[in-house]
Design a protein around this nucleic acid. Structure first.
Lengths: 136, 136
DNA sequence: ACTAACATGCAACTCTGTTGCAAGATATTT
DNA sequence: AAATATCTTGCAACAGAGTTGCATGTTAGT
């Protein structure tokens, strides 16, 4: 509870029950969540639009990051503190084709790539799809 | 012209002007295209729905593949022949944050990753965002 | 307790993508 | 070259995702 408030304060955000609940949902369910997932979990308490705006705010403040997917965007908590200025992620995302869950593999870093002359990379996003340990 | 027909035939598809035009658009513009891009290019001639269905068909037949993006799905030509049974891609996609174009770097393969025990990968998708040579 | 600044809910709207069905086009057979 | 079965298209209608404006409610700081 207090941890939630502190996280929000740390990012210059006011404490509201919606933000607490969204943040708490990200913490308890550990996988990446779509807007729809959150609406399913919290939709009775909050308006769709508020959840959209909460996600947008969290993104901008560096609390969550986008997770690419071939069937819709998802979001997951940033582990090391990302800031308003710059997100910094180089971990791998794994999506299970059986249970559908997408998870961050925080410990696995994306290997370096030698891009041709002239390319200036800033941001890496690797999604691996397959079968996860739970569904094995 | 004939090449288009042959590609379609080779994938057991009937020749229609819409399919020829969509295929031809992918060939001339070399970057990844969204449905919206195609609608912009061909929308006067064909219905939105037809373009959606054409993309779906091309996907299934292995003529194009999905390109993940943080702001909507795109599609690009498959270089080596993908089949109805299985797409096979391990190249890198690069999206320029200035011009917005996404391109396949066919020559660059996604580096191998050592996944933890229990993960069975089947499909890799690496998107690198940054500045491309043209915008440099 | 007061107030300025911010967050929420509601309504309306836009954009994206899908489905059913009747009409039209394609390839194949004769 | 005509007939036919099969596939493709356009239209209309719909479902879902995401956005914007505005009035009301809430937060944090004085």
């Amino acid at each position: 509870m207090d941890q939630l408030r502190e996280t929000l304060k740390g990012h210059q955000l006011r404490t509201t029950t919606c933000r607490e609940d969204v943040l708490s949902t990200f913490i308890t369910k550990k996988n990446a969540l779509s807007h729809g997932d959150l609406e399913g979990a919290l939709g009775e308490n909050y308006d769709r639009v508020t959840i959209y705006r909460t996600l947008k705010t969290f993104l901008e403040k560096g609390i969550i990051h986008k997770v690419l997917d071939d069937e819709g965007l998802r979001y997951a908590l940033c582990s090391h503190s990302c800031s308003e200025e710059k997100h910094h992620h180089d971990h791998i995302h794994f999506k299970c084709i059986q249970c559908g869950e997408t998870n961050c593999l925080e410990n696995l870093h994306i290997p370096a790539v030698n891009l041709p002359e002239g390319y200036h990379p800033e941001n890496f996003n690797l999604l691996i799809q397959g079968v996860c340990p739970k569904c094995n």
